[in-house]
């Protein structure tokens, strides 16, 4: 694709996204929708800037909670995924357990965490952790299972240990799967944090939204939604950029080969 076409494509995306908000604004005005039902984007942004000093600590709280839960989820997810991908026994044991576990609605486990750890940050971290580690486990295990048997034979005949194969072949091969999982997981992690914050916390964006909605401060509820969406998009973009550097080989990118 030429540079011109690429720029035009990006431009179109920006126009369409801005157009989406404009359409929302215009429709609300034209149909006379009350801001108690659906606030206009301009109202939401105005509220956002007005209340930013008050919102800021909550944003940091939610971001920190999510990142801790997410990092924990990634570490545990990679460890379990690697174990399942390498050992048949672990596969047979852990998969049914994991699938059963991930089928449980997470809102049902928040009270249990509160029971164990009290309300506050810890249940939020744990909720975001358990909600985001499952995609990572599945993707890492799948990636490891796709190692070519011939290559494994070549390396075993050289005296490679299981760890050698995992380190030199398995883990690099998993990278594209891993990043695909990260991008899904980071959005899940926010869902988990906010879920726990709305149920059992007095801090965080989820809690702000909860109290705002009980005060019928709908623009503030939407401001909270916008913040969460923006955080999610920002982290998604960050991982996409890292991914392009690390796994350019998977998409056979020419700029990767030239680097």
């Amino acid at each position: 694709m030429t540079d011109f076409a690429a720029v035009r494509r990006k431009l179109w995306a920006v126009v369409l996204i801005v157009g989406f908000f404009a359409l929302w604004e215009v429709l609300c005005l034209a149909l006379g929708v009350s801001d108690l039902v659906l606030p206009r984007p301009s109202q939401v942004f105005a509220t956002l800037f007005e209340r930013l000093p008050i919102l800021w600590p909550h944003i940091l709280q939610t971001l920190m909670t999510t990142m801790i839960g997410f990092v924990g989820g990634v570490v545990i997810g990679v460890a379990i995924g690697a174990l399942i991908g390498v050992s048949k026994v672990a596969y047979d044991t852990a998969y049914p357990l994991l699938i059963g576990f991930s089928s449980i609605p997470k809102v049902a486990v928040v009270p249990i965490f509160v029971l164990w750890f009290g309300s506050g940050t810890v249940p939020a971290v744990l909720t975001s952790l358990i909600i985001c580690f499952f995609p990572i486990v599945v993707n890492v295990a799948t990636g490891l299972a796709t190692t070519e048997p011939e290559l494994e034979d070549v390396l075993k005949a050289l005296g490679a240990s299981k760890f050698d194969i995992l380190w030199n072949v398995g883990l690099p091969r998993v990278m594209p799967f891993f990043f695909a999982a990260l991008k899904v997981s980071i959005t899940y992690a926010f869902v988990g944090t906010v879920l726990a914050e709305t149920v059992a916390s007095n801090r965080g964006v989820g809690n702000v939204m909860m109290s705002a909605s009980s005060n019928f401060d709908v623009p503030l509820v939407f401001a909270g939604l916008f913040i969460l969406a923006a955080l999610g998009v920002a982290l998604y973009v960050a991982f996409s950029l890292i991914e392009r550097r690390v796994t350019g080989w998977a998409t056979r990118r020419d700029d990767f080969a030239a680097a």
Binding site: E148, E150, L158, G159, D164, P172, M175, T247, A250
Partner: peptide, 27 residues
């Protein structure tokens, strides 16, 4: 032992030279 199969199984994230040197990482 050196082995080669019908499927060349080069690792796509390594250059040709790094692929060729792979056994030296192991043996």
């Amino acid at each position: 032992i050196g082995m080669a199969f019908q499927n060349p199984t080069m690792l796509p994230w390594l250059t040709v030279e790094q692929n060729v040197m792979l056994p030296l990482k192991i043996v």
